[in-house]
Simulated scan of single mutants.
Amino acid sequence: MPYTQDIVEELNILVRYNLTTTQEGIKVHKTATPETINATRRLYDKGLISQKDGGYLTSLGREVAEQAQAILDILKPA
């Protein structure tokens, strides 16, 4: 199954998290693009983040974010 635009948008949110600490979250403001706001809400609905507008990664969210960042590191141009 290829990545859908929704999945790409969700991955783009997840790779914004700083994985070196659990004390830092993100906040998606109401002025963000509708795609970003919707992606953040979907991540919340899936149990990957703690708030509808960002917040912190859940345990599952951290695992997924680690994988997303690893994929990005592997695929980015040399």
Rank of each mutant, 00 (worst) to 15 (best):
Asp6Glu: 15
Arg41Met: 08
Leu19Tyr: 13
Ile49Asn: 01
Val15Thr: 03
Glu10Val: 11
Asp6Thr: 13
Val64Ser: 04
Glu9Phe: 07
Asp6Ile: 14
Thr20Asn: 10
Ala65Lys: 03
Pro77Ile: 15
Tyr44Cys: 02
Lys27Met: 07
Lys27Ala: 09
Pro77Val: 15
Met1Pro: 07
Val64Leu: 10
Leu14Val: 06
Asn12Thr: 06
Thr58Ser: 09
Ala32Arg: 05
Ser50Asp: 02
Gln23Lys: 11
Ile26Met: 02
Lys46Arg: 15
Gln51Leu: 15
Leu43Thr: 01
Thr4Cys: 09
Gln67His: 12
Glu9Met: 05
Thr40Leu: 12
Glu24Arg: 04
Val28Pro: 00
Met1Ser: 10
Thr4Ala: 06
Ala65Asp: 04
Gly25Glu: 07
Lys46Tyr: 14
Val15Leu: 00
Arg42Met: 14
Thr4Ser: 13
Gln69Ile: 05
Arg41Ser: 04
Leu19Pro: 07
Pro2Cys: 08
Glu10His: 12
Gly54Thr: 00
Glu9Ser: 02
Gly61Ile: 12
Asp45Met: 14
Lys52Ser: 14
Ala78Asn: 13
Asn38Ser: 11
Ile71Gln: 13
Ala65Gln: 07
Glu9Thr: 08
Tyr44Gln: 00
Lys30Asn: 12
Thr21Asp: 11
Thr22Phe: 12
Arg16His: 04
Gly55Asp: 01
Glu63Ser: 13
Leu48Cys: 03
Arg16Thr: 08
Gly25Arg: 04
Pro77His: 14
Lys30Gly: 11
Thr58Leu: 10
Gln69His: 01
Thr58Ala: 08
Ile37Ala: 05
Gln51Asn: 10
Gly55Ala: 07
Val28Gly: 01
Ile74His: 15
